[in-house]
Simulated assay, not measured.
Amino acid sequence: MLTGKQRSYLKGIANSEKPITQIGKSGVTDSFLEQLDLALEAREIVKISILESSLLDAKDTANEVAEQLDAEFVQAIGNKFVIYRKSTKNPKIQLPKS
């Protein structure tokens, strides 16, 4: 579970990131989750955009994806959301202590 300070730190990092993938009409699929799992292991923090045609809510979708991938929801703004998971093999992001 992230503290407020850690969440703020991750929001600052995510601010300069571009979305690396999109969720379309088909919604959250198994192949999407596999791709995102690999991206989280490599990058630790990932920004995803939701296409308007999918009619999904960003915050609900982010929480669902984070739960399935054992990741942490960071933020949702408009049709984009950010999730974080510490890499098991090569951690890069050093979170501040509480």
Score class of each variant (00 low, 15 high):
Asp70Trp: 00
Thr21Phe: 01
Asn79Tyr: 06
Leu33Thr: 02
Lys25His: 01
Ile50Pro: 03
Asn90Val: 10
Lys92His: 04
Lys92Glu: 11
Leu51Lys: 13
Asp57Thr: 09
Ser8His: 08
Leu95Gly: 07
Pro91Leu: 10
Glu72Leu: 00
Ala66Cys: 07
Lys80Asp: 13
Asp60Val: 01
Gly78Trp: 06
Thr29Ala: 03
Lys92Ala: 13
Ser16His: 11
Phe32Pro: 04
Ala14Tyr: 06
Gln94Leu: 12
Lys5Ala: 09
Ala58Ile: 02
Pro91Glu: 09
Glu41Pro: 00
Thr21Ala: 11
Asp37Leu: 03
Val82Cys: 04
Thr61Trp: 04
Ser87Gln: 11
Leu51Asp: 07
Glu41Arg: 07
Asn90Lys: 14
Ser49Pro: 00
Val74Trp: 03
Glu67Thr: 12
Gln94Asp: 15
Ile77Asp: 14
Ala42Val: 09
Ile93Ser: 03
Leu56Thr: 04
Ile93Arg: 05
Glu44His: 06
Leu38Ile: 13
Gln6Met: 06
Glu52Ser: 12
Ile23Gln: 04
Lys92Cys: 03
Ile83Lys: 12
Val46Met: 04
Ala71Arg: 06
Ile83Phe: 04
Gly12Asn: 14
Arg7Leu: 10
Pro96Met: 07
Glu44Leu: 02
Tyr84Ser: 07
Val82Ile: 15
Glu44Gly: 03
Ala14Trp: 04
Leu56Ala: 01
Ser87Pro: 11
Lys97Ala: 14
Gln94His: 09
Asp30Gly: 01
Met1Thr: 10
Gly27Trp: 05
Thr29Lys: 03
Gln6Pro: 05
Glu72Ala: 10
Gln22Pro: 00
Lys92Phe: 10
Gln68Glu: 08
Ala58Gly: 01
Glu44Lys: 04
Glu64Leu: 15
Leu95Ala: 05
Ala71Cys: 02
Ala76Leu: 05
Ile20Ser: 10
Gln68Thr: 00
Thr61Pro: 01
Gly12Val: 04
Gly12His: 09
Ala71Asn: 08
Ile45Lys: 01
Leu33Glu: 02
Ala39Trp: 00
Asp30Lys: 11
Lys47Thr: 11
Leu51Arg: 12
Glu44Ser: 03
Ile93Glu: 06
Asp60Tyr: 07
Gly12Leu: 14
Asn79Arg: 15
Pro91Ser: 10
Lys80Gln: 15
Ser16Glu: 12
Asn79Ala: 06
Ala42Gly: 00
Pro19Ile: 07
Ala76Cys: 09
Ala14Thr: 06
Lys11Arg: 15
Lys5Glu: 14
Lys47Tyr: 02
Val82Thr: 15
Gln22Trp: 05
Arg7Phe: 04
Ala71Leu: 06
Ala62Thr: 10
Leu69His: 09
Glu72Asn: 13
Ile93Trp: 08
Lys59Tyr: 01
Ile13Tyr: 04
Val74Arg: 05
Asp57Leu: 11
Asn90Ser: 12
Ile23Arg: 01
Arg43Met: 02
Asp37Pro: 00
Ser49Cys: 12
Glu67Ala: 15
Gln68His: 02
Thr88Ile: 14
Thr3Asp: 06
Gly24Ile: 05
Gly78Glu: 08
Leu10Glu: 10
Ala39Val: 05
Glu52Lys: 10
Ile13Pro: 08
Asp57Gly: 10
Ile23Asp: 06
Gly4Val: 07
